[in-house]
Computed example of a mutant assay.
Amino acid sequence: MLDIAEELHRWCEEGRDFAVATVVAVSGSAPRQPGAALAVDADGTAVGSVSGGCVEGAVYELCREALESDESGEGVVRRFGYSDEDAFAVGLTCGGVIDVLVVPVRADDPLRAVAAPALATAARGGTAALARVVSGPAGMAGRALLVHADGRHTGTLGGPEELDRAAAAEAAALLEAGRTATLEIGADGSRCGEPVTLLVECSVPPPRMIVFGAIDFAAALVRAGKFLGHHVTVCDARPVFATARRFPEADEVVVDWPHRYLDAQASRGALDGRTVLCVLTHDAKFDVPLLERALRLPVAYVGAMGSRRTHEQRLARLREAGMGEAELARLRSPIGLDLGARTPEETALSIAAEIVALRRGGSGAPLTGAGTPIHHEHPQREPGHEPRHERRASVAA
């Protein structure tokens, strides 16, 4: 639902009734992941997607039926699988299987009271998690819980308070990691008892990309970072180069010494496990003090531009500065994947590809003839970021 928050927030503001179909589980090769949503209002207007086109027509009709039904907003779960054996069957041609939860969201439904503020928060780019019951004991289906950035929660799943507290804690863990997933907890809030399956959708501000070095390659990387959904900052100590005119697509252009700016961002908690740091300066007086700090921060990616000779010289200076081999092993240098890139745009593409591969657990190898998975499980996370009862939300083909 939060996948299409801007449109659904507007519908709520306009008082429209609608039904929303959300992917709650995926196995095999499928085009969309848990949290992907399609919504249909009372006039038949549709927004969003659950499959990239394979089953949209059938899901659209399920939404229309949910809106026309006199039943309460408990919703139904439908499974769509591979359809190649029957040319007239509705299914996924890619061979995967998806489970879709279809729920009406009317003005007088309890879900609306919880979903509306969640949609408003997500629409403005804020932080919130919406936990919805996919299946569980009678009376719980369709119930929802909103978990705020400060850990408070509103709404109820319809069980004891212990269930709401346990669900809020699990949702908070996913929110910290910036993930959407399906999980199971006991109906009494423990690991035992009748299971309750929850879909937890998370809205978090976009991940940050900080590009150090206001060079022509940086301008291309800014565009690539924005395309990937990052909030992009360009930082350089030279005011003649670090200008908004040279980087119109950047969210911020900062004139400061790179290591000093990074220190300030770290001290105010503005960096997290999704942050990407790209060092394009390839000048030792900037690189070494910057990388000393960057490689000791719990960020997602640290890459540095330069030739292999520059890289070896940089490593030597960092070792002289007291950095250990485990810290240096985090450095992606020379930056990017081997695409044979030459232009700034091609280089930006190689850097963006490496960032995606690292985030998704990809190898960077060609898919043709490799026999490797097309879709990967989430890579290993820092301790404490993995919800205790999380189910496998997708299985690579």
Rank of each mutant, 00 (worst) to 15 (best):
G53S: 08
R330C: 08
D108T: 13
E85M: 08
K226V: 14
A123N: 14
A129L: 07
G189M: 05
A242W: 07
G361N: 14
V134I: 14
E162R: 13
V232S: 07
A30R: 11
D3Q: 12
R293H: 05
S49E: 01
R78V: 15
P298V: 07
D3H: 14
D263C: 10
Y301G: 05
A42E: 11
G44L: 05
I335D: 01
P117Q: 13
T233I: 06
V232D: 06
G15Q: 03
A144C: 06
R314T: 07
A218W: 03
G361M: 04
V76Y: 02
H311L: 10
E68I: 06
T233L: 06
V240G: 02
T368G: 05
R245F: 02
L280D: 05
S333A: 15
T93R: 04
G53I: 04
V47E: 13
V211C: 11
A181C: 09
S267Q: 08
P334V: 05
V26C: 15
G361W: 03
T347E: 00
E74D: 04
R332I: 04
A397E: 00
L228W: 08
R223F: 03
D272A: 11
A250L: 11
A166T: 10
L111K: 00
L262H: 11
A365I: 01
D272N: 11
L8K: 15
E201K: 10
A42L: 01
A115D: 05
D70T: 09
K285L: 06
R330G: 07
A171R: 12
A264M: 03
R293G: 02
A58E: 07
E13M: 13
A5G: 03
P137E: 13
C54V: 01
A397K: 04
A341S: 10
E6Q: 13
D188P: 14
S333I: 01
R308Y: 04
E6M: 15
A187F: 07
Y261C: 03
K226T: 11
L290R: 02
G225Q: 10
A397D: 00
P366M: 11
L331M: 08
A122E: 08
R381H: 11
V105F: 15
V59D: 12
R191H: 00
A19F: 05
L339D: 02
Y60E: 05
L2A: 13
T180V: 11
A352P: 11
G126P: 12
T281E: 01
V302M: 06
L290I: 08
H375F: 02
